Computed example of a mutant assay.
Amino acid sequence: MAAVARLTGRRAPEKIGLLDLGLMGVFTHRLSRTPAKDPVVSPLRAPFTKYVGVSGPSELREEVRGMKQAGEDGSG
């Protein structure tokens, strides 16, 4: 992004407004949830996870392959 901004001659704004900050937060949240939960991206997660079921509308529930969850061994 910095290279594109430099090539187009744009500069970063002096101040970021509250509305812009809120929009960036929502966008970042949605951007991070897409590769983590979206069914379309599940083939990329397949080597690392195993399918368990559906956790919500348009979301898959998967577990990490080969790792024990904390407390599964009875010590927790």
Results as ranks from 00 to 15, higher is better:
M1C: 09
M1Q: 10
A2P: 02
A2L: 13
V4A: 08
A5I: 07
R6H: 10
L7A: 14
L7S: 07
L7G: 04
L7P: 13
T8I: 05
G9I: 11
G9W: 07
R10Q: 13
P13S: 11
E14R: 13
E14Q: 04
K15C: 01
G17Q: 05
G17D: 11
D20K: 05
G22E: 02
G22Q: 00
M24S: 11
G25F: 01
V26K: 02
V26M: 11
V26P: 08
F27A: 12
F27G: 14
F27C: 03
F27M: 05
T28D: 12
H29P: 00
R30Y: 05
R30P: 02
L31F: 12
R33A: 10
T34W: 09
P35Y: 03
A36V: 10
A36T: 08
K37Q: 14
K37L: 15
K37R: 11
D38H: 15
P39K: 09
V41L: 15
S42W: 06
S42F: 13
R45D: 06
R45N: 06
R45Q: 09
R45W: 06
R45E: 03
R45P: 03
T49Q: 09
T49Y: 09
Y51P: 08
V52E: 15
V52S: 12
V52K: 09
V54W: 00
S55G: 15
G56P: 04
P57W: 07
P57D: 06
P57V: 07
E59C: 03
E59I: 08
E59S: 14
L60H: 07
R61Q: 15
E62M: 03
E63A: 15
E63K: 10
E63Y: 03
R65K: 15
R65E: 06
G66M: 01
G66Y: 08
M67T: 09
K68H: 04
K68W: 05
Q69F: 07
G71Y: 01
G71Q: 07
G71F: 02
G71T: 03
E72V: 05
D73P: 06
G74N: 06
G74E: 10
G74T: 09
G74L: 10
G76C: 04
